[in-house]
Computed example of a mutant assay.
Amino acid sequence: MNMSNTNTFAIEKYLAFRHIQYKSVQRLTGGTGNYVWRIVDESGGSQVAKHAEPFVASNPNIPFALDRMDFEYKALMQIPQQIPTDELIGMPKVHCYDAEQHVLTIADGGSRTLKDAYTDPDVGIPEYGRRLGAWLAALHQKSRETNIGNNITAKTIYRHAYTHTSATAKNFDLDPALGERVNTEYGSLLSTDDECVCHGDFWPGNVLVSDRGLTIVDWEMVRRGCGATDVGQFAAEAYLLDRFCGNRGLLSAFLLGYRQAGKLAASFVRRMAIHMGVHLAFWPTVVPWGSSEETKECVVLGNEIMKKATEDNWRDRLKLTPLKDLLKDEL
C-alpha cells in the first residue's frame, strides 16, 4: 500500500489495510518533521502513529532523509534495555514499525509537553528537572559501546545553529568573528564525536507529561556524539523557560541532577557551555520568546557564554553566567 498521501483519510486507509481497529483518528500538530496522529480504540486506549515523507512535513520544500524513522525505531528498541529502570521516566513502547511505508506506531505518552506544563503549579518542575538530568547522565554513561549507526542527517541538522551564529550576531551588532571561530573549532566536531549515544533533540518540548510520569519522545535525531551537546541544548531551553515563564528552577535542578551522576571532566563542561551559548545565540531568533529587545538579550547572553567559555580563565568566567550551579563543586 502506498502511504504517500499525508492526510487523515490516508492513515485511516492504512490502518484498515493493516487490520488495526480504531474508533477515531486525530491529526496532531506542534511538530515539524513528520505527520503524526493519535489513534483511539474502542476501549478508549490510544497510540500514536508517525509517518515520514522525504521532506519536512511543515515545509515540503525542505528535504528530510527517510532513514530518520529507522534511527528512531532502533533507539526505542535498544536504549530501554541498556539504561536503569526509572519509575518516573521512560521511552514509548513500540507497537509496530513498517519500514517500507515509514510508519512507526508507539504508545501514547500524553498530549502535554514539559514546556506546556511548565507553568502548571501542580507539576513539580524542580523534581522533574533533577530526575531528567540524572536520566540523561545514565543514557550517556551506559551507551558508550552502543552501536546506533551513523545518522548523517542528524549531524548535519545539529550543526545548523553553529553555521548561522555569526550571521545572527552581525544582525544584532555583535562581533561575528566569535561565531565563526566557534563553528570552526566546535561545530566541526559534530561530524566526528563518538563518545556515547545522544538523543539529538533533548529539550522540554520532547518530554511528555502525564499521570504516568515523563516520556522521552522524538528520537529521529539520535546519533553517536558528545553528551555535552544534549546537556547544553536542554540547559538553554530550561534557561528560556525559567527566564520567560516563571523562574521555577528547571535549569538549576537539571544541571544538579546531571552533575550528581558523577564528576564531569573540564572538557565536557566547556563543551556544554559552548553548545548552550550557540543555542541561545541563534534559536531565540527563530522561535521568539519575547519582544525584540528580549530576543536580543538572549542573543547577547549566548555570545557572552561562548566568549567566556573560549577564554583561558573560562571556569571562573562561567561562574558569572546561568551555568554557575554546574560549576559549584566540579573540577
Rank of each mutant, 00 (worst) to 15 (best):
L136W: 09
A49H: 14
E145G: 10
R270G: 03
G200P: 04
N313R: 06
D70Y: 07
I125K: 03
F254K: 06
T165M: 15
L323E: 11
M1W: 03
A266F: 05
I216E: 09
P92Y: 08
P288R: 11
S24I: 03
N34A: 15
R112F: 07
T85N: 13
A273G: 13
R243M: 12
S291T: 15
I125C: 10
I157P: 04
A107N: 13
Q78Y: 05
K74W: 03
D316L: 11
D211L: 08
L323P: 07
F64D: 13
L256S: 13
E87C: 11
F202H: 06
A75V: 04
I20L: 09
I39G: 00
V299P: 05
T153Q: 15
W37N: 11
K324N: 12
L280H: 02
L327C: 04
T229L: 12
K50I: 11
K142F: 07
R259N: 13
L256G: 01
A65K: 15
E12C: 12
A10Y: 00
K23S: 15
R38G: 03
C298V: 04
N247E: 14
T192C: 08
V269I: 13
L240M: 13
R38V: 02
Y162K: 06
T119M: 11
L139I: 10
S267Y: 03
L326N: 04
E87H: 12
S191D: 15
L280W: 00
N183F: 02
C196H: 08
N303H: 14
S46V: 05
T119C: 14
N171I: 01
R317Q: 14
N151P: 13
P126E: 02
T321G: 01
A10N: 02
E12V: 09
G149M: 03
T163G: 03
Q21H: 09
A99F: 02
V231K: 02
D211V: 09
N147T: 13
A236R: 05
A228C: 00
V56E: 09
F9W: 04
R224K: 15
